[in-house]
Design a protein around this nucleic acid. Structure first.
Lengths: 207, 207
DNA sequence: GGCTGTTCAGTGATAAAGTCACACAAGGAA
DNA sequence: TTCCTTGTGTGACTTTATCACTGAACAGCC
């Protein structure tokens, strides 16, 4: 709990009365790296608005394998929570903080009031939902049809600017929704091609 | 265009004034089997509410392979359209009518008015979104981790009560997001085990 | 009936990816 | 040091995907 300034774009355009409601009804919560926002099965406490940091949402299959579904960053909305909030069902996925994050929790009552009284808020929610749906459709396509070596290379290239990254093969396997051994072999092959240098818990990009 | 009775649960609880708006602003459109509601890239004309029939939504990857993302049936809402309606982006997927369908098209203006003035309508939209998101998450998990023979068997078992179904191996491959040859081989194996009888364009369940 | 073109299905060969089992290496703690 | 945990490498094998064909089933025609 701290001084509040409603630093989330979806709250910026609220009329004065709702703004006051929001200031009263909202609490900013700080989460550190590794903290779990929610797990599969948890009931939904409210709609999280991410102010900054990074949170990954992943799901674990019956087989025990996991896959990262999407990430939330600054100014993002945890769309997944809305459905759970509405139906009262538990979460199907879990959310883990990657970079220390600050989150505003919008409780059910306030959410309903905002939806009722602010067209901009509604628009923001709908847009967020639409984007999430599109992302997931693309992910289905990617998982179903794209080759693992392509997907791995693409994932790495997106981070190559950093020179080197700290990640285990197991974590990378969860990113891509595959098995650790597959990642190990593909990485080894890239190292043989001279594109990477591998060490325990770290991948370094050559050049 | 025909006599309208607003036969969709999301429209049932509208207050009288909105009800009149809906009766004026809506047109019921009949689509026959095989008709394409929208294709990838098409702009969104409005929110389709499915009154009856069945529509499948599928997407085609860069590789040219396709996969069925979900189906819409009686009393369903084409959630995917909302995002496109909001952002003005084109569709990423395509919708094909499987069983002759009747659809109400809600234009943008009326949609906004309904969202603004009916809490029940909002609730219906949010629930639909939530369900779709959950379905897609499950599909990601299924495609990423479940074995193809399991998924095929499950798909078939869900339809075994009908005795036999008309479908080509190619169509079944699109249902599961795999290649035709894979389906052919797995089906042949099931036939060898005496669980099926195969003929051109038809699968018959034994017993 | 017999031709002809099209769609559908079957299959071998090969490559990619997933699974299982295990060896070993790196690093931290006692 | 030794022990323990976590992370990585790899062989053997299965499942799935891809490529390249073959031939069967059906429809429309003469």
């Amino acid at each position: 709990m701290e001084k509040l300034t409603l630093q989330h774009s979806i709250l910026e355009t609220l009329p004065e009365s709702l703004r006051r409601d929001a200031l009263n009804g909202l609490q900013a919560i700080q989460f550190e790296h590794g903290k779990v926002l929610f797990r599969a099965g948890d009931p939904c406490q409210g709609l999280p608005l991410v102010l900054h940091g990074s949170v990954k949402v992943q799901m674990t299959g019956l087989s025990g394998n996991s896959i990262v579904l999407y990430r939330m960053g600054a100014d993002d909305i945890c769309t997944l929570s809305i459905g759970c909030l509405m139906t009262g069902d538990g979460f199907r996925a879990e959310a883990v903080v990657e970079e220390d994050a600050k989150v505003l929790m919008v409780p059910r009552g306030l959410f309903d009031r905002l939806m009722d009284q602010s067209a901009d808020f509604r628009l923001g929610i709908m847009e967020s939902y639409g984007r999430r749906l599109n992302d997931l459709m693309l992910l289905v396509e990617e998982v179903a049809f794209r080759r693992m070596d392509d997907r791995l290379s693409q994932w790495l290239e997106a981070r190559a600017a950093e020179g080197s990254i700290r990640i285990t093969h197991q974590e990378l396997a969860v990113e891509l929704g595959t098995a650790r051994e597959v990642v190990s072999r593909l990485l080894k092959e890239l190292e043989r091609q001279g594109k990477l240098r591998l060490s325990r818990g770290r991948i370094s990009f050559v050049q």
